[in-house]
């Protein structure tokens, strides 16, 4: 009897050891709920990119960049995505043990959405117009900067704040002439406009002079120092997943839907189409995918510092990146 117990304990112990050896567990933290822009990690799971690197990846949803950074800092997740500006602001004020490892969006996702027949064709046309935004979006901090670059000040527009869910309806019903939202939601707003028999035009801030990094891959310093090989393998697989996602948006939508059934695969695919430019653009072409350059980090930090009213000297932007894990330009 005792022998049986002993041998079964050993068997279980060996079993769990081999299971641990079989695949490395990684928890990936999203900065929001699943959607087309978050597709790569799901694609990585469904298409076997992580399995090929011997990784077992679990996805945790988040409630904003700050939330994602906090969860990674406190060890509830190993690696994830968040706005690099939020990480810079966090690092400048409090040395959170989190580092950026790769770029995902090399352009800012912020944009104005207007009705196509509104006569507003560029940011300058917003002078004297009503603009609605949600109270807690990071876009609000960048708004004065983008207005300034287009020869406007915040006095030239009437800014109203409303719940994110109310912005679309407000635009369609004419309660406001423009709304501030992310290009990641273009597909959703277009669908909403179609329902009201209208079309919308997107005015991305990246085309209005706001040139900076945004969504990036960030990881806890502990994960990077304790399991560097796992981190490297993850980033390699993630990179492949990103490439696959933007090459096959429809399949990526299906993959996402398979894991999160609530996601409509068609909408997800449309989202992926609409944010292609955030991932693949002149910056990614010249610097290489995933690379965070010192120059653009500095530019980004200047914007972030100004937007968040922080001293430009309070952070060395290059210090927030752990270059050892950055994808090499090919």
């Amino acid at each position: 009897m005792l022998n049986f117990v002993r041998s079964s304990i050993i068997a279980i112990a060996i079993g769990s050891c081999t299971a641990a050896m079989a695949a490395d567990h990684v928890t990936f933290q999203l900065d929001w709920l699943p959607g087309g822009d978050k597709a790569p990690v799901y694609v990585g799971i469904q298409e076997g990119f992580f399995r090929a690197e011997n990784l077992d990846v679990k996805v945790a949803t988040g409630r904003g960049s700050t939330d994602a950074i906090t969860k990674i800092a406190t060890g509830q997740a190993d690696i994830g995505m968040a706005d690099i500006g939020a990480l810079m602001a966090a690092k400048a004020q409090d040395d959170v043990p989190v580092s950026a490892v790769a770029a995902y969006f090399t352009q800012a996702p912020h944009a104005f959405f207007v009705l196509s027949n509104s006569g507003i064709h560029n940011i300058k046309d917003l002078a004297g117009k009503k603009v609605a935004t949600s109270p807690f979006t990071s876009s609000n901090a960048f708004l004065p900067l983008v207005l300034k670059q287009n020869g406007l000040s915040d006095k030239d527009i009437t800014l109203i704040k409303a719940d994110p869910g109310a912005l679309g309806p407000m635009l369609m019903t004419g309660n406001t002439q423009a709304i501030i939202a992310w290009v990641t939601n273009t597909a959703l707003y277009k669908a909403q406009a179609a329902q009201a028999g209208k079309t919308i035009t997107v005015l991305p801030w990246s085309e209005g002079g706001l040139s900076l990094y945004s969504s990036s891959i960030i990881a806890s310093d502990r994960f990077l120092s304790e399991r560097p090989e796992v981190a490297k393998r993850f980033i390699k697989a993630f990179e492949k997943a990103v490439v696959y996602t933007y090459a096959h948006p429809e399949k990526a939508g299906e993959d996402l839907h398979d894991i999160v059934p609530e996601v409509d695969p068609k909408i997800a695919a449309a989202q992926i189409h609409s944010i292609y430019d955030l991932v693949y653009n002149k910056i990614s072409q010249s610097d290489g995918f995933g690379v965070l350059t010192a120059k653009r980090l500095t530019t980004t930090w200047q914007y972030v510092a100004k937007a968040n009213d922080l001293s430009p000297d309070s952070l060395n932007p290059e210090k927030i990146v752990n270059k050892a894990f950055m994808p090499t330009p090919n």
Partner: peptide
């Protein structure tokens, strides 16, 4: 990652 509250929040985020 689950639950009716999550479901409502999720549905809203997709309009």
């Amino acid at each position: 990652e689950q639950g009716l509250g999550y479901f409502i929040q999720f549905s809203t985020s997709f309009f």
